[in-house]
Amino acid sequence: MAHRWGMVVDLDRCTGCEACVTACHAENNIPTVGAAEAARGRAMHWIRVERYWEGEFPEARLTFRPVLCQQCDNAPCEAVCPTYASHQTDEGLNAQVYNRCIGTRYCANACMYNVRFFNFFHPQWEKPLQLQLNPDVSLREAGVMEKCTFCVQRIKAAKSEARAEERELVDGALQPACAQACPAGALVFGDLNDPESRVARLSESPRGSKLLEEYGAEPKITYLQRQGWHEPDAQ
């Protein structure tokens, strides 16, 4: 059976430390745009940790929510792309073919999660920062949309390794950079088509829900909601 890559984000574990954000930048050659461009809303973070305040001082409370491409089954970005740059792969990834992208930015508008990022200029790595680049991930030129790939380069590498060694993929051994970095283990990645995988089991959690589920995009990321503390039964 084909793989169907998915993720579970446990909001009860997430501490907002943003290890995932830097890990993603490092893995995927995401450009740093600089202060001036960041001020104009051009910072690129394929994964971000959204934070929302509730209440007022001194009852204020803060919640963190990592948001990355939800890899929707019914992805609104794919339908609107005139050139098929945004399309669904056999394994359920919302792929972005950079070479096919002409930069209408329609996909980014159609995406209600705003997880697509646009190269407004040619990305720059001031020498010798280009040496940090991951040779497995292509660079994107100006005018091209980019987004979370679930670290497709890692998926491909793990699959070819498994094929060479004539074995199945091991659940948990293959992780995107964000999940690998996450100290608290808030991000769990795996194959939703494997009923024994951790991600498939956690997706069934009663704490689970999808982000903006009402839009019907059928995301493959399940959020496990943060829990409150309840006084345990007297001991």
Binding site: P82, T83, Y84, I102, G103, T104, Y106, F118, N119, V144
Partner: peptide
């Protein structure tokens, strides 16, 4: 407004060796 306007012709359904057509689901097409 395109990011790469020199590729705007990809909206036209011309026969190409790669057999890629415009996405007829897209309102832009």
């Amino acid at each position: 407004h395109l990011g790469r306007p020199w590729l705007a012709f990809w909206l036209a359904p011309y026969p190409s060796a790669r057999e890629i057509w415009p996405n007829f689901r897209s309102p832009l097409v």
